[in-house]
């Protein structure tokens, strides 16, 4: 069986896997990373979205062996120092989740969307999240949350860069 190494949410794992094992099953069944759920098996719903080497990927459509040597970030690895990621906070503030099953994938896809467009319009958010399905919210509050999260992330990166520009005393 192939032996792979994969870093998941900051922890390095070395695993022997069947070639056919899906990344999402590696995460859930082998590594206990059950924060990433499975919604459809066909790459349509996006519930299983994770960051694979910095880009969003639907982990039901990736083989574990394809992730060999990769860095995976799941919704469980977003918080820093006990503080939620701005996008997690925004989903909470805007009531952008009900049952919450799509939420991990939705949050990961939203963060990925902002890499290309840090200040997306409503329409851009709707188009950008087309690959992530939610059955509860009707999406209105998800769109609001993504834009709110985007604004907060921009504010933080602006204050971080201005902090760096402050000359040493």
């Amino acid at each position: 069986m192939p032996r792979i190494t994969v870093n998941v949410d900051g922890i390095a794992y070395e695993e022997e896997v069947e070639p056919r094992l899906l990344l999402v099953h590696l995460l859930r069944d082998r590594l206990g990373k059950t924060g990433t759920p499975i919604g459809c098996d066909t790459g349509n719903c996006g519930a299983c979205t994770v960051m694979l080497d910095g880009q969003s990927a639907k982990s039901c459509s990736v083989l574990a062996v394809q992730a060999d040597g990769s860095d995976v970030v799941t919704v469980e690895g977003l918080a820093r120092g006990g503080e939620w990621h701005p996008m997690q906070r925004a989903f909470h503030e805007e009531h952008a989740l009900q049952c919450g099953y799509c939420t991990p994938g939705m949050i990961m896809a939203a963060i990925d969307l902002l890499r290309d467009d840090p200040d997306p319009s409503e329409e851009a958010v709707r188009e950008g999240l087309e690959g992530n399905l939610c059955r509860c919210t009707g999406y209105c509050n998800i769109v609001r949350a993504v834009r709110r999260g985007a604004a907060e992330m921009s504010r933080r990166s602006a204050s971080e860069s201005s902090a760096q520009e402050v000359p040493a005393p």
Binding site: R28, G32, T34, P37, V75, Q88, H92, L97, G100
Partner: peptide, 20 residues
């Protein structure tokens, strides 16, 4: 804002399929 959200936005949920 909902109390339920904390576990749902951080992935600390207990879906039935999570149970081992």
């Amino acid at each position: 804002r909902r109390k339920e959200d904390a576990r749902l936005v951080t992935g600390r949920t207990t879906w039935t399929d999570n149970i081992q």
